[in-house]
Design a protein around this nucleic acid. Sequence first.
DNA 1: CGGCATCCGTGACGATACTG
DNA 2: CAGTATCGTCACGGATGCCG
Lengths: 133, 133
Amino acid sequence: MSQTQCTEEAGADAYDVFARACPSRGTLEHVTGRWGSLTLCALSGDTLRFNELRRRVDGVSEKMLSQTLHALERDGLVIRDAQPTNPPHVEYRLSPLGRAAAERLQALIDLVETRMPDVMASRESYDAARGTG
Amino acid sequence: MSQTQCTEEAGADAYDVFARACPSRGTLEHVTGRWGSLTLCALSGDTLRFNELRRRVDGVSEKMLSQTLHALERDGLVIRDAQPTNPPHVEYRLSPLGRAAAERLQALIDLVETRMPDVMASRESYDAARGTG
DNA sequence: CGGCATCCGTGACGATACTG
DNA sequence: CAGTATCGTCACGGATGCCG
């Protein structure tokens, strides 16, 4: 079946080429990606189970959450606690490194959110200029 | 021509649905995206011209750089100075907000880069565990 | 419940050609 | 040099189905 997509459990990106030149890029992508960032934020508050996480991260599919979690776990940002009970009980939490990353990320998010009015204003003038001119 | 892709100059993402619920997500994507982050970093040092930027941001295509720059400009993070000379001379630089964002971003990147050894180690154990059994 | 495999559509992205 | 228009690809990501 070779690798149709990211079936490769390792979570190898299609951008390995660049990752090779700059290994941190891949990790940065995991952290800052659409789902990665939201997952990190969700976990910065609590330890959560798979489906709790799924509810928190609005719009994420099971597949993407699983994929994101794997990438983050592999990078050592997220810790997976699986208790082999029945039904299975699995919890996800941040590692110290994950927590540090989440904090930096949160700083960025806070900035963007507080400055959102400016952004919206900028967007309007930009669109106006383009639409009118 | 409707919108084959992101031809829409406004830079409307395919994730408007989520953006509507949380407007900052779109901007966050622009800032943290593969090219957005690298562009912001490249510009945090200097004012650069289009092709200088292209050389700095390793692997970016003309199209993506243009697209990224537009998104960032629209969000008010990047300022475009175009002098209608011949040949055209266009410079890109960060706005104060863009600079603030770039700083936060850099903090995250620095963290990831300095902790890269940990990440690599984590990856190895993860892969070993999966590979071995 | 937690989570993997598969199929499949959409659109992000890269290469190219063209304009000013 | 700066940038847009077009086309092809293929990876991302959603829906579904199955297993422990």
